[in-house]
Structure formats: C-alpha cells, structure tokens
C-alpha cells in the first residue's frame, strides 16, 4: 500500500515536470532560434529548407546602426515613453489619492470611468485621434506619441497606485493631520514615500505597454522623426529583399533586455500591477 502510494507520487511528479519542461521549451526555443536568426548572415535566413546551425556573424548588429537611423528610433522611444510616464504620474498620483482617501459623491463612478478607459480599443479612437493631432500639427512628432501613451496608461497607473495607497493605515495620516499638516503635505511627505513600490510598479508597467504600442504609433509616425522601435521593425524591409529578419531580431533583443531587467526588479509586484491592483500577490 505504502509502496504503491510512493510509486504514484513518483509518477505524478514525473508527469508534472514533463509538462512544465515542455512548456518551458515552447517558451525558450523560439527565442533562442530567433536570436540565432539575428546572428547569422542574410543569405541563411530564407531558404527552401531552414538551416538550424548557421554561420555566426554580427553583420545584423552593425547593419542596424549603420543602415538605419537607430539612434533616432531609440531617442523617439525614450523621449515619448519617459515623457508619457511623467505625465501619468503627475495626473495619477493626486487622482489615486483622491479615490483612495476621500468620500464624496460620484467617487465610485469617477473611479469606474477611469478604469473603463482601459477598455477603449485603440481602433475605436484611432481616426478621431489622427484628425485631432493633424489639426494640432502634431502628426509625426514624439509629442503626439507622448500624449497618447500617457492616455493609454493613465487608468492603469491610477488604479495601481490607488490600490497601494489603500494599504497605508489611515491612522498615520490622521496623526500627521492632528499635528497640523495640510492634505497636500501629507500626500507628498507621507503617502508618496510609503507607496513608492506601487508607484514604481505602475511606472514600469506603463513603460512596457508604451514600448509595445503599435497601432497609434503606426498612424502618428511617418518618418524617422517619430518612429519608435516597435513600429520601426515593420519598416525593416528592403524592397525586393523582403523582410530583413536578422536586423529585426537584433532590434527585438535590444528592446527585450531592458524590459527583462525592469520586470525582474518589480517581480514581486508584477501580478498586482498587471491586474490594476486587484490581486495582492
């Protein structure tokens, strides 16, 4: 009896690891293979039968810096993304504080309205936004991207920060209030430092979503003065040469590593951030 149970345990453990390893391979193999695409010459990418052991070369890495305005793409990405996160924090922190700490009419409705903007499909607002920016003369500028990324992430940042603010015991603020501190002083000196992990988490996730953004950027950017990494990829085609995959691979990994570092840094808070504060992991 005891032996049968232990044999069952071994079997179920083996099955469990077989499944986990299988999925891990499904995750990793395409990534390693795509890295190998970036480190091989163009002639070894599209063949009648794929080549799994290619010649190693850094051609593509040199190519992305010489044949394309990578510097401009990087600059556009950085400026628009960090600008958008700063806008988000400036707007979201006071809003989150208001939603977390005060009781007033329409509070629930306002909170839900902010949340519901997360559900606005980019395609729904794409055309009006395109006309709006055209009329403002902002098409093909990083400013337009900055404004749109900020709008896209504002609901997430507000809700995540609000969730962390709710965790702060109100007694601390009450004590400060008794000592005569004003509400804004309390927000800046006590609440913001105490929910800093939440603010950082929200900012990191906003950065990642902004890096990923595709549709709006595709419509707004039309030259290298606004192309970001995400959309620049889609232009890595050399006319008759077709899609230039090894360059695409290099750019993909160029964006991947900073994101990996950011995500590892906020690992513990990731699930809470992704669910807008709903899961306290």
């Amino acid at each position: 009896m005891a032996r049968r149970r232990s044999r069952n345990r071994v079997a179920s453990l083996t099955l469990r690891y077989a499944i986990l390893i299988a999925w891990a391979l499904f995750c990793i193999v395409p990534i390693v293979w795509f890295l190998s695409i970036g480190l091989r010459p163009r002639t070894e990418i599209i063949l009648p039968r794929p080549l799994y052991l290619p010649t190693f070369t850094l051609d593509a890495w040199h190519m992305i810096w010489t044949a394309w305005p990578m510097g401009a793409y990087l600059r556009n990405s950085l400026v628009s993304i960090f600008g958008s996160v700063i806008i988000d924090l400036l707007l979201a922190i006071p809003a989150a504080y208001s939603l977390a700490r005060y009781r007033y009419r329409f509070r629930e409705d306002i909170g839900f309205y902010i949340l519901s903007t997360r559900m606005m499909a980019p395609a729904i607002v794409a055309i009006p936004i395109f006309f709006l920016f055209r009329n403002l003369g902002l098409l093909d500028t990083v400013w337009a991207l900055m404004l749109i990324y900020a709008a896209m992430n504002l609901s997430l940042v507000t809700w995540v920060v609000r969730s962390y603010m709710l965790d702060i015991p109100p007694e601390i603020e009450d004590a400060a209030r008794t000592d005569g501190a004003s509400d804004l002083k309390i927000l800046i000196l006590i609440v913001i430092p105490m929910c800093l992990p939440g603010i950082i988490t929200a900012a990191v996730i906003a950065v990642i979503f902004a890096i990923n953004e595709f549709l709006f950027t595709l419509l707004i950017a039309s030259t290298q003065s606004a192309y970001t990494l995400s959309v620049a990829l889609a232009n890595f085609t050399g006319g008759s040469d077709g899609v230039i995959y090894n360059a695409i691979s290099m750019v993909a990994f160029l964006a991947f590593f900073p994101v990996l570092i950011l995500v590892i840094a906020i690992q513990k808070h990731l699930s809470r951030g992704l669910t807008m504060g709903a899961v306290k992991g």
Partner: peptide, 11 residues
C-alpha cells in the same frame, strides 16, 4: 514562462 511576454508584440 514570462519571457515571451517581454518582447514587443511586433517582434
């Protein structure tokens, strides 16, 4: 398991 999510969707 997280790795695929960290690439840009266009990539």
């Amino acid at each position: 398991f997280l790795l695929p999510m960290l690439f840009m969707p266009s990539a």
